[in-house]
Amino acid sequence: MAENAPDPTAGKAPQGHPGLPRWAKLLALGVGIALVVLVVAMLLVGGEHGPGMHG
């Protein structure tokens, strides 16, 4: 009778998704900061459009 080979994954936690790479996290952070700056700038300027702004 042959012995069963031990399961190499026995007793180990299942491998989950490794997560986002560092460059993707930094890109998302940069885009988020740029959006916040854009919104703050629009609120401070007033956002009124018209011919008077181009004069």
Rank of each mutant, 00 (worst) to 15 (best):
L27K: 08
P14N: 05
T9V: 00
G30Y: 05
A5R: 12
H49C: 03
A24M: 10
P6V: 03
A41Y: 11
A41K: 02
A13S: 10
G11W: 06
V31E: 03
G52Y: 01
L27W: 14
K25R: 13
L29C: 09
G46T: 01
H54C: 00
P14G: 05
L29P: 00
L35Y: 05
L44T: 15
L43N: 08
A5Q: 07
H54Q: 06
P51I: 01
P51Q: 11
N4F: 11
W23L: 09
D7E: 02
G50R: 05
L20D: 13
H17E: 06
G30C: 12
A28R: 12
L27M: 12
G55E: 10
W23H: 12
V39Y: 13
M53W: 10
A24K: 12
P8I: 06
E48A: 11
V36L: 15
H49Y: 07
W23E: 15
A34K: 05
A2K: 05
V39I: 15
K25P: 00
K12R: 15
V45S: 13
V37M: 14
Q15I: 14
K25T: 02
D7A: 00
P14E: 11
P8C: 00
L26C: 09
G11T: 03
L20V: 05
M42I: 09
K25I: 11
L26Q: 14
L26R: 14
R22D: 15
L35K: 01
P18A: 10
G55V: 07
A24C: 02
P21C: 06
A34H: 06
R22L: 12
D7N: 15
G32R: 04
L44A: 15
L35W: 08
L20Y: 09
Q15C: 00
L29N: 10
T9E: 14
V31Y: 03
